[in-house]
Nucleic acid binder design. Structure first.
Lengths: 339, 339
DNA sequence: CTGAAAGCGCTTACAG
DNA sequence: CTGAAAGCGCTTACAG
């Protein structure tokens, strides 16, 4: 049925070892003419090595897991931001001769199972909360290299790759303060003393401190970072925070929802309320008014993540310090002078 | 290092075969007390079967490929529509005990390689053009079950799952005609005598026929179905087709770009030009004005795709006729009476 | 109900 | 430069 190393070896009149060496590019160990003859046969027969057999015999599967949180009964909810990351990761992995296993994780225990089942060489954790990353144990992870995107977890089993969330929020708040805003709502998911949202919160507050101002605490917490929760928020902000002249949202999709909610209740952006987001999704340019936001370099984030992961795997390098990428303020039409 | 069948067998004082039977749920062949004892040990030791070994020994890998086109140097571009499909497919597969290999395909030959390398049990083709699906040969595919999403290809190696594109476009055009529009632009990718776009074109034209009208041919072809090409279109339509009072776009993202381009040049939607899309992306509700469009049942499309694929694999059923799903017109604010 | 043997398609030392 | 042997962790008939 399937063409195997043995088939090629028989046809070439050599041992399977020699064919294996050729297929794997160990050219130093085989004569030039043999190499050429074998390569011809390989091409003619359409031989493709069995990854399972290779994985079983060698220590390496050349397969990387992309682990994404999934509520048990739900389908994978992949945000536009994470779609971009995913696309880049797949590409980089493919270019490097690795395969990608995409797996939704409903329960913490599934991480270990996912890793062991296919003997993954490494995995990227995409979209996990820091508290979940913290909880990963050596028993579950084994010696698999783990890279957590957008994580500030101190778990030594993982390396973090993230944007400079602190500076991003600082830039955003500075921009609003510069426009004369003083009463600003901070809208985002609940956060603790660590993690992406906390970093953004800290950067946001730092802008007030550096300007010698005191921020009137106006935090609004959302359950989910979606357009619809944002929209609800937008409807509530004018009544719940009548003094507020601006809103900082921790994600574009939330900010866009807020603008929609404001519009629903007859409030104008930015005249009545300036709105600023975070991510710089394509979408932020499609809406009216176009969203002022903080841009992350998503392709670079993904590229560095994979590069770092493969280095750890192939060179047995110890995962070094986390990587933090630069961010940039993108001024568009959703922010204006305070009223 | 890794916990194996043999470790469990030794600890339980039975043969590895017995452990294998327990792990695989062949309970009929093992006594109740042995089952319980083995299960206890399996849990305690955290045993996870080696998928590679299983794949090698058995005929089945229990792994399904999700193949997505990728320009060689580009990252995977996954449309919002396909993200939703992907998320559903992963979930269904996971629930059914399958794993998902995500793979970008830059060249046709890579399909065969992807299939063979991990001995995939089946694969879903997502986002391929019919002409690429047509070109798949038995040699490359082998006996792997292939399911093509949004395909009208007649290639017997694949089964198609798609929405009722013909009716969708028919409903859209009927809606516009009902509003008094007669001069309508049809904007979409180039198409031949088959495929999704052709179906939509045919349905679009049928609406004119059934109304006893003749459609003045106004086809605008785009290279890529993106917001930016749509935007360019929107800028050109008023000058290139001054008589047109409406535009039908084969995708929401294109329609939204068209609206943006019209807005750029000072044209109002729907007052100057009605715009209708296709897909009903979340996005179509976020833009101003909200987009009138044709909704597909994406979760159902994905669910049926996986169900059909697994049936073919597990029951050795022959892939039967393609599946076509119902569509629905969603009237929102981007369409209005002809001026 | 339970097990010994062969084999899936590779790679890894080890010899020559 | 080339190869024979052992083994990776399973499953599949086949016996008992």
């Amino acid at each position: 049925m399937r063409v195997t190393l043995k088939d090629i070896a028989d046809e070439a009149g050599v041992s399977i070892m020699t064919v294996s060496n050729v297929v794997n590019g160990n050219r130093a160990r085989v004569s030039a003419e043999t190499i050429e003859r074998i390569q011809r046969i390989v091409a003619a027969r359409g031989y493709v090595p069995s990854a399972s057999a290779r994985s079983l015999a060698a220590k390496s599967s050349r397969m990387i897991g992309l682990l994404v949180p999934a509520a048990d009964e739900d389908s994978l909810m992949i945000s536009p931001h994470n779609v971009a990351i995913l696309g880049q990761i797949e590409r980089q992995l493919r270019k490097s001769g690795y395969h990608l296993l995409l797996r939704g994780i409903a329960q913490p225990s599934e991480v270990g199972e996912a890793l062991k089942s296919w003997s993954l060489d490494g995995a990227v954790l995409l979209g996990f909360l820091d508290e979940d990353v913290d909880r990963l144990t050596p028993g579950a992870v084994g010696n698999v290299s783990l890279l957590a995107v957008d994580s500030y977890s101190d778990n030594p089993l993982t390396t973090g790759v993230r944007s400079d969330d602190y500076t991003g929020a600082l830039l955003a708040a500075r921009h609003l303060i510069g426009l004369g805003h003083r009463e600003i709502v901070f809208a985002g998911p609940a956060f603790t003393g660590a993690g992406v949202v906390h970093q953004r919160y800290a950067g946001f507050r730092a802008a007030f401190t550096e300007a010698g101002l005191t921020w009137t605490e106006r935090v609004i917490t959302v359950e989910t970072t979606t357009h619809s929760t944002g929209r609800n928020l937008g409807r509530r902000i004018p009544t719940e925070h009548p003094e507020a002249t601006a809103a900082f949202a921790t994600a574009d999709i939330l900010a866009i929802g807020i603008m929609e909610g404001l519009n629903d209740t007859g409030h104008a952006v930015p005249e009545d309320l300036s709105v600023i987001g975070f991510d710089n999704l394509d979408l932020s340019e499609y809406v009216t008014p176009k969203l002022t936001t903080v841009a992350q370099d998503i392709p670079q984030k993904a590229a560095l993540a994979v590069e770092r992961l493969l280095a750890t795997i192939e060179k047995q390098e110890h995962p070094d310090s986390p990587i933090t990428l630069d961010v940039q303020l993108i001024e568009r039409a959703s922010t204006g002078p305070a009223r």
